[in-house]
């Protein structure tokens, strides 16, 4: 091991070790946050699903009137709600969702509502028009915020400010797998499979009023669900990324230790040779 001194290797090992400690700590933090986020996803999923199926039931059985939420307009402008993280070092979490959204934005007139610092930064630097930058802290957004965003979106949609609302988020499939996805929130799609008999539904006070009230609630619910999914996905992605970073650091430390021992041995051998030659 000529050329590399033992001292140099030792410094590198030490710096590697402190890096490893940091990534290890980040992994542990992410793991504990992940547990909370996972519990929340599991709690909110039934709400998400029932809300979705109830709305589809109503939409499917509703043939006698046309709500602006149901009419498909020619799409001139699309509103994109994009949920990303506040911080980096989470593997491909931020870049995956932003890449997916970018690929769908290309060639369209859009207005983006970014949630999370990374999303805000991305769209600012790409000069994509944004509705607001108020939600640059994804970790602080609660149910109330989701409902107020939903209310704003549905009002703007009714005014015709845009003709389509799409949400981009990350699906928490499992601890090891997260997939970015987009979901069209407005207009509601009329599917005709398995309709409820339309003649026997009471709308209290009236079908249009019901729709006007329920759709913003529905959007808020979907938004909250997507946010929960994304947060869990972020922590899972960060945990995996930090786990492999720790693994890499360990591999490098092992490699460097071997080199260090070889260099030390070489130095000792040389010293002995010199003593023997000198006597």
């Amino acid at each position: 091991m000529a050329g590399v001194s033992t001292k140099e290797i030792k410094t590198r090992i030490r710096s590697m070790e402190s890096t490893k400690q940091i990534t290890k700590a980040m992994e542990m933090v992410a793991a504990s946050k992940l547990r909370h986020a996972q519990a929340r996803v599991q709690n909110s999923r039934p709400y998400f699903e029932i809300l979705y199926s109830t709305i589809t039931d109503i939409v499917n059985s509703n043939t006698e009137f046309s709500s602006p939420y149901l009419t498909q307009r020619p799409v001139k402008k699309t509103a994109f709600v994009v949920i990303a993280g506040d911080r980096g070092l989470a593997g491909g979490y931020n870049s995956n969702i932003l890449k997916l959204v970018q690929s769908q934005i290309d060639g369209k007139t859009v207005s983006v509502l970014p949630i999370g610092k990374k999303a805000v930064d991305y769209f600012r630097s790409h000069k994509v028009p944004m509705m607001t930058e108020n939600y640059s802290n994804a970790a602080d957004i609660n149910v109330g915020d989701c409902f107020s965003i939903a209310k704003q979106l549905s009002q703007a949609y009714l005014k015709g400010e845009f003709d389509e609302v799409v949400i981009g988020y990350t699906n928490f499939v499992s601890v090891l797998s997260q997939t970015p996805a987009t979901l069209k929130m407005l207009p509601l799609v009329h599917e005709s499979d398995d309709p409820v008999d339309p003649a026997y539904i009471i709308y209290e006070p009236g079908s249009e009023e019901v729709f006007e009230k329920i759709v913003p609630e529905y959007l808020g619910g979907i938004l909250y669900g997507a946010l929960c999914e994304s947060r869990a996905a972020e922590q899972a992605a960060r945990r995996t990324a930090m786990d492999s970073a720790t693994q890499n650091a360990e591999d490098m430390i092992a490699d460097l230790s071997l080199k260090f021992n070889q260099a030390r041995q070489a130095a000792i051998t040389q010293e002995i040779t010199e003593i023997v030659a000198g006597s």
Partner: peptide, 19 residues
């Protein structure tokens, strides 16, 4: 309590939606 007042539901209620 719905937006248009209290509603009571018993078994065998008609299909109904209310905010």
């Amino acid at each position: 309590r719905t937006t248009s007042g209290d509603i009571g539901v018993l078994a065998g209620h008609l299909n109904c939606v209310a905010p």
